[in-house]
Design a protein around this nucleic acid. Structure first.
Lengths: 347, 347
DNA sequence: GAGGTAAGAGAAAACCTTTTCCCAACCAAG
DNA sequence: CTTGGTTGGGAAAAGGTTTTCTCTTACCTC
């Protein structure tokens, strides 16, 4: 081998504005102005420069532009949701809102590790991201990093913010109400609620709304059953609900789709028909689960993609120098109707 | 309101090297050298500058560094796996491999949309990413973009590359063999295989390895059952396997965890015990499914995080100017043993 | 004390683009 | 012929950092 301490790159140097200018026989200043529709020059000069740029495949170096404009057209998405069940739909909405503005998204999973979080945040700050969106896998937990006083705009999505931050979360109470009211419209009378552990804020929020909706609709009260976010708990809850002597429910509103799946399976094993004897509604609308239950599961969708889009747009306007009122904005959920509730009495 | 056409930013200007130099009473050149352990100066000068930088909270502007070094310390991850089932573990490995080198990752979901793909790729190219990793939701499909001749290194992970690209994929044949051999060790004799549709390359690859492993171990041949990647198909396949007159299987190797779940549920409904009467192994080790089956599912894990780490490290060395032999590298799977197979005869 | 060397530090170029300011040339009017 | 205005285009600074080169001192040796 010849001198291999000087690695020969197979990748050609990108063409710069200087190359374009030289080729077109003008100065870089003129070339820049031609391409950006700035300054004054004859139409033919402008077109000649443009044509040269096109033929050379010139693309402006974003780094140089960013340095000058003090904007990197880059934002960071911080999460600790390893499986992406919540953060990916969010990411999809964010990306959707930003891609047309030419903004790319750094995704950083910080797990629960403050050191990792620090590392990622510093890397992003050094790269001069225009802003940061923080998310997580549950609303009532902070990421293991402090994002206040960061010199750049920060938006929280689907996670609890510092008191006077800008945040977007789903309206879980509204979602619960949606479920109960759907059952009401279908004529269900005894609606049970099986949900997750008491340590989750959303459990209480939804349970509260569930109770309120029962009262409003003049339905008999029934205490929510708190347990785990698992199929197993759904199973167990059915035993509790249907084994004791009281009147049996004809509808179960579940805190997530996995619980709902457990409930549906347990009901079938007891010979109860869904939706014939009992209607079931889940929460999260996690399609992979909701579509695999038999029958397919009606579920409350938190509209995370829309939430992400809102967060992205708001961050964009914040970056643009506008201000946004601090506080929590709750975005409505929607009910995705499948076959686990039956249909309206009159078509 | 005062003049609000001049938005007053609440975000202070970052401190620059120039600020540090001024404060320390030296030139920017000296300041730079002090902080980078370059050049010659008295230890006390160096320390004084460092101390100044620390106290001012100086962090070098990555954009300026990147411009100069022609490296952005940034890579792109391109995917069309909306739910992130495969791309997120991959991402996690990639990020893990790169974060210590100070490299951040742009995540771009291009769906199946060539226009979107083009948009994202151009945005990343303009931002001078050091390299790109392409992935997807199935190995035998391209992303809807051409990444050849891109002026930067490209690595494929868990997706089919252009012929002479660098790629990492899981060793699906090895994974299938792992499953069959585990059944063998447990003394299972009649091993069935229920898998996905014929349109997937991995279906054939695994089926092939399954047949070969049966022969090697002197077990009776049995044709793989091809269907869908769904629980419903798992259910249906059990009917096919156990309803006809032939000898019944005592083990089922499934093409993914959802099929396995369908199989397990169907077996239970028939009164067959898992693992007592029939052992079941899944594929993907998708924990959310594998741990919810009753009993919990033994499953083949494709080690996607490790795969991502390899891909990340290789990209890093490619970016560093080293070359990598083109071709496909297959990384081994591993078997995650839970309770759906029973235990070895002698402890 | 002369000549040489090494140390310490700064000036300037480079990376690439944008933008402000300026200059030269041309034209028309007085 | 002068004045004033317009038009086409370039020079230069800015953005923040790194690196090479150069310069000035101080020290050492003979």
């Amino acid at each position: 081998m010849a001198s291999d301490d000087q690695p020969v790159s197979v990748f050609p140097k990108p063409v710069t504005l200087r190359d374009v200018a030289a080729q077109a026989g003008v100065s870089v200043a003129t070339a820049s102005k031609a391409l950006n529709d700035q300054g004054r020059m004859t139409a033919e000069t402008r077109e000649r420069i443009r044509e040269t740029a096109r033929s050379l495949g010139f693309r402006p170096n974003s780094l140089a532009q960013s340095l000058l404009r003090r904007r990197s057209f880059t934002v960071g998405l911080l999460t600790n949701d390893t499986y992406g069940r919540f953060s990916l739909p969010l990411m999809s909405g964010i990306s959707d809102a930003l891609v047309d503005a030419g903004v790319s998204v750094f995704l950083c999973n910080v797990e629960e590790d403050p050191r990792l979080g620090q590392l990622h945040v510093e890397a992003m700050l050094d790269k001069r991201v225009d802003g940061i969106i923080a998310t997580g896998k549950r609303i009532d937990r902070h990421l293991p990093i402090d994002l206040a006083n960061l010199r750049i705009p920060v938006i929280y999505a689907f996670t609890q913010p510092d008191p006077d931050a800008v945040a977007f979360v789903s309206d879980d109470a509204g979602g619960a109400r949606l479920a109960v009211e759907h059952f009401c419209r279908l004529g269900r009378k005894r609606i049970a609620h099986v949900t997750g552990p008491a340590s989750f804020a959303v459990v209480h929020e939804r349970a509260q709304a569930y109770r309120a909706a029962l009262i409003e609709n003049g339905l008999p009260m029934s205490e929510p059953l708190l347990g785990a976010w698992s199929e197993a708990w759904g199973h167990e809850a059915v035993t509790i609900l249907f084994d004791d002597g009281e009147e049996k429910p004809d509808a179960v509103f579940c805190g997530n789709d996995q619980i709902a799946r457990g409930v549906i399976d347990a009901l079938r094993e007891r010979g109860l028909s869904v939706p014939g004897d009992v209607g079931v509604i889940g929460f999260d609308n996690w399609e992979i689960v909701a579509e695999a239950t038999r029958p397919p599961l009606t579920s409350v969708d938190m509209n995370l993609t829309a939430l992400g889009r809102e967060a992205g747009l708001t961050l964009l306007s914040l970056v643009g120098g506008k201000s946004a009122a601090p506080g929590i904005r709750k975005l409505p959920c929607r009910l995705v109707v499948r076959q686990s509730c039956g249909r309206l009495p009159d078509g």
